[in-house]
Structure formats: C-alpha cells, structure tokens
Design a binder for these strands. Structure first.
Length: 562
DNA sequence: CTAGGGTTAG
C-alpha cells in the first residue's frame, strides 16, 4: 500500500499554508523535487492545489508547475480552474478545461469541474461561454447535481438573466435550502423583489443566510424600510445575526439618512462583539459620512486595521461629499502610499474632491492619470465629474469643450452639470443649449425644465419662464417637490417644499425661526440668487433659511489628517 | 484530497 494514497494532507503540503514568500515556496518545491515526491501524482495535485488557492491573484508559479507535469490528475486541473475562477485572470480557467478534454489519460470533467467553470463564467460575465458550459454540463450528465444547480443560478444572476434562473430553478424537483436562497438572491438582484419575498415566505426552512439574502435584497433595491423591518422580524424569530446582516442594516440606514438607527446598529455590533470585517467597517464609514457625521466616519476609518480599496474610496467620497476636498485628496495620497491600487470608482471620489476644493488643474491631471498611469478607462461618470469640475469653477467654455470632445455620446449627467454651472454663472446662452440637449436625451426629465425656468427667472425674463411652464404642462410634467428627511428617535420624518402637514408643524416653525434668528446674528446672509422664481424677495430669504445645507469653511484639525 | 446560497465604495 502506497502511503501517498492516504487521504490526509502530506506534512510538507501542510507547511505551504504558512508560507508567504515565493522564495520559501521555491525552497519547498525543490525539496519535493529532490526527494522525487512530485512524481507521485496525488502529492503533485495537493501541491498545485495548495499553492494555487493560496495565491489566486498570481498563478504564474502554479501554472509553471502544472505545465511541467505531463499527467496531471483531475484534482490538480480542477484546482487550477477553481483558483483561476477566484482570481484576477478567470479567462485562463478554460486552458485547464481543455487539458481535461484533451488528456490522453482518459480524464473527463466531473461535477467539481463544472461548478468551478460556471463560477468563472459568472466572474467574466461571459454570456455565450456560460451557455456553452451549461450545455456541456448537461451533456456530461451533471444537470442534477445540487452544487452545479446553485452555481448555474448564481451565474445567470451575474449575467442579469432572470428568466434563465427561473428555467434552472423550476426544473429542480425539490430545491434545497442553498438553491432556494440562490433564487431569492437572483430575483432581488434582477429586479423582482416581490417574487423574491414570495419565495422567501414559503421556504420550509430558513437559516440566517436566507434571512441575510432577503434583507440584502431590500437594502440593495432601494427599499431600506423593508430591510429594517425584516431585520426586526429576524431578531424576533431568534435567528442568528452576524456581521453580514449588519452590513445590510447599515446600508439601509445610510439610504434612509437615519443616523440614530445607524448609531444603534454600531452599538449592536459592539455589544454583540461581531467581527469587524473590512466590509462591515466600510459600511459603517459610509453610513456615518452620508448621514453627515464625517468625523465619526473618519474615527472608524483610522481605527480599522485592514482597509481595502472600498474602505479608502468610501472615506474619500464621504470627505468630498461633506465639503472636505483637500482632505479627500490627502487621503488619496496616503492610500497609494499604502500600496492600494485605485480603481474607476476611486477616481469618482478623487474628482469630486477636486471639484469641492476648486482644484481644476489638479483634477485634470488626475483624470489624465487614469489611463496613463493606472490603465483605467474613464467612464461616463468621470466625464460628468470633469464637466462639473470645470463648470463649478466657472470655466464654462472648457466644460462645453470637454463635452464636445468626449469619445462617447454625452449623457444627461454631463449636460446637467453644464446646465447647473450655467445657472450658477448666469450664462443664458449656454444654459439654453444645455437644457435643449438635456431634453433631447430625456424629455421626461424635470430638472432640465426647472433649471432653465429658474435661469430665466434669475434674468427676470418672465415670458420665457411661463413658456417653459407651458411646455412642461403640455408634456405632462409637474415639478416634483424637493424633500428633506430627518430621523428623530428612530422615526423618519419627511418634509416637502411648502409642506406643513407634520403634526407638530407649529413647534417646528417656531424652532426654525429661532435658528434663523441666531444664524442672522452670527452673520449668515442668505444667497437669494439660485432660488425659485415665483416667490417674493423676503419670502425667498425665508425659504433659504429653512434649507438645511449651509456653506461653511473647512474646519481644521477635525479629521486626524494634519 | 476539491464544491453550492448572504455583505461594502459611483
């Protein structure tokens, strides 16, 4: 009996798990070769699996080892497909699938092979290939393997193909918990949250992952209240809550602007000693920053031992959103210094930081660097940010020039940013052009009409104002009222413009008057320019005082950056 | 000796 046939890991293989450097790995490799241990195909398979799965983002070495071997086992090849499906080069999975098919040692793909391959297709969003793999696995008879089935549902979810998810799911006579949860997730991610909930409600057994999937579904599809109420139910039913649940809860609080509930969630995490994962920390930072407590967001940020590109991007975006442009850019430098590579979304935060700091030239340089230094292709969002950057700085011609030189068709975001800038700087001519373009792109967009009519109002051109209003009426558009949301004692209150329906409106109005008085005493003077046309001058100032955002200077030494 | 469902930044 060959001792290498035993099921247990060879001690040398176990050693690799603790190896971190390539140098050490090579030493172990040469030891194995010197002792002829790698001639044993099972040990070679274990070796390859271990080094590949430990470094899925750099598979050069395991590729080399495998290529030197002329009779790799199915286990070794499956491990290579698996590692590639998890890493940064999933397309290479297919090389090993071919090796299985072309093997002269009578290998044929098994259920593991297809499970990993399906994940590769999901990772690549490769629709055609996904269909081909689906066909191949049916041909090889693995259609009824539950692991493969849940993998297929996951793949079609990533491909955005809900009807295919249904086709797979409906063919399963008795779908298990995992397939059911995958289907709940598929429906909520592909836009059918109602059916997701129906499925969830009729599940005979629901574990904490099923609950997490349903709560995440609500949080992701813009129904944060439902997410929170389902979380409440989850606690009532005594289901195990973990850090994944809390990420969705925080995300729901963020979308509601519910700082008190967000604080409660933070306290809950600490009280129950949940693991502060990178994802959870990032969700906390995002919640605090977007609910307006940027200092607390940064406190969480600095307290995190491990940070990834999401964490940094989130903190930078939060700083920019709260008006701390320079701090945002300082953080960008620190992030690069820490060896974290920025991605497309990071640059959205960077460009916003430049915009709020008014750093036009620096913004342009960062934009240029995306392609030249980081190999990232600017997307529509980045072009929109650049128009905003030029526009808010008053460089309207450059903003227009930028739009005209975009390599793709300018979207409403670009024209909208220009229109907004035209109003800020009272450029009627350009403003008319921008709003015309905006209406061409989406003729049901209120913003174009409203901004344009406000511009005419600024100019006291009342005839044009009413003509825009007439057009809006003719096209069935009435202005959506602006809405502010505030949360008090766990209850969320909404206020629309001119809305006095709140039960405690009188008290609120008295308090607002008091705040306004103190603001005036403190020297705050309302800027009445960018305000709606149809109210009188004193009324305008009154309306402005009730608006919640006030421009303020960047406070110093607040954010632990200096 | 390998595998499946849930989480974060625009």
């Amino acid at each position: 009996m060959n001792s290498f046939r035993s099921v247990a890991k060879h001690p040398i293989i176990s050693l690799i798990d603790s190896v971190t450097t390539l140098k050490e790995l090579k030493q172990i490799h040469s030891q194995l070769v010197l002792n002829s241990l790698l001639k044993n195909p099972h040990l070679l398979g274990q070796f390859i699996a271990t080094i590949a799965l430990n470094n899925p983002d750099n598979l050069d070495y395991s590729n080399q080892v495998l290529d030197q071997c002329d009779n790799p086992t199915l286990f070794a090849l499956n491990s290579m497909i698996r590692a590639h499906s998890k890493g940064s080069t999933p397309q290479n999975s297919f090389r090993f699938y071919k090796k299985i098919l072309q093997s002269n040692h009578n290998l044929s793909p098994d259920n593991y092979t297809f499970n990993f391959l399906v994940r590769t297709c999901a990772q690549l969003s490769a629709h055609g290939t996904g269909l081909a793999v689906h066909g191949a696995l049916i041909k090889h008879g693995f259609e009824h393997d539950p692991h493969v089935q849940s993998g297929l549902i996951f793949m079609y979810t990533e491909l955005g193909c809900l009807s295919s998810c249904h086709k797979v799911f409906d063919k399963i006579p008795e779908p298990d918990l995992v397939c059911q949860t995958a289907m709940v997730s598929a429906c909520s991610k592909c836009g059918d949250i109602g059916f997701a909930r129906e499925l969830f409600d009729v599940m005979p057994m629901r574990d904490h992952i099923a609950w997490n999937a349903m709560i995440a579904g609500y949080a992701q599809c813009g129904q944060p209240r439902e997410a929170l109420s389902l979380f409440h139910l989850m606690q009532m039913e005594g289901v195990w809550v973990n850090e994944v649940s809390m990420v969705s809860v925080l995300s729901a609080c963020t979308h509601l602007g519910a700082l008190d509930q967000g604080r409660w969630a933070h306290a809950y995490i600490e009280r129950n000693k949940l693991r502060m994962t990178v994802t959870l920390g990032t969700a906390l930072i995002d919640m605090y920053a977007k609910c307006g407590n940027v200092n607390k967001a940064m406190e969480v940020f600095w307290g995190m031992k491990e940070k990834n590109v999401y964490t940094w991007t989130s903190a930078m975006g939060g700083l920019a959103m709260n008006g701390f442009g320079k701090k945002c850019l300082e953080l960008f430098s620190l992030m690069k210094h820490d060896g974290i590579h920025p991605n497309e979304i990071t640059f959205v935060s960077v460009l916003r930081g430049c915009t709020v700091a008014g750093l036009v030239e620096e913004g342009r340089e960062h934009f240029e660097s995306m392609g030249k230094v980081y190999g990232l292709e600017p997307q529509l969002e980045h072009y929109g940010c650049m128009v905003d950057l030029y526009g808010r700085a008053g460089h309207l011609d450059e903003a227009l020039n930028f739009i005209n030189n975009m390599p793709m068709k300018p979207h409403s975001g670009a024209w909208g940013a220009l229109l907004n800038a035209c109003r800020m700087y009272k450029n009627m001519k350009l403003g008319e052009l921008a709003s015309r373009k905006l209406v061409e792109l989406e003729d049901k967009n209120h913003c174009a009409y409203v901004l344009l009519s406000n511009m005419y109002a600024d100019n006291k051109n009342w005839e044009e104002v009413s003509s825009v209003r007439e057009i809006m009426k003719a096209r069935g558009l009435t202005k959506l009222p602006g809405c502010s949301v505030i949360e008090v004692g766990g209850e969320v209150h909404e206020f629309f413009v001119g809305d006095n329906s709140h039960p405690r409106y009188d008290e609120i109005e008295m308090m607002m008057a008091e705040i306004s008085k103190r603001l005036r005493l403190a020297g705050y003077v309302a800027d009445t320019n960018p305000v709606l046309f149809d109210i009188e001058e004193e009324e305008k100032e009154d309306a402005l005082f009730k608006h919640s955002e006030k421009d303020c200077e960047e406070p110093q030494d607040l954010l632990g950056l200096s």
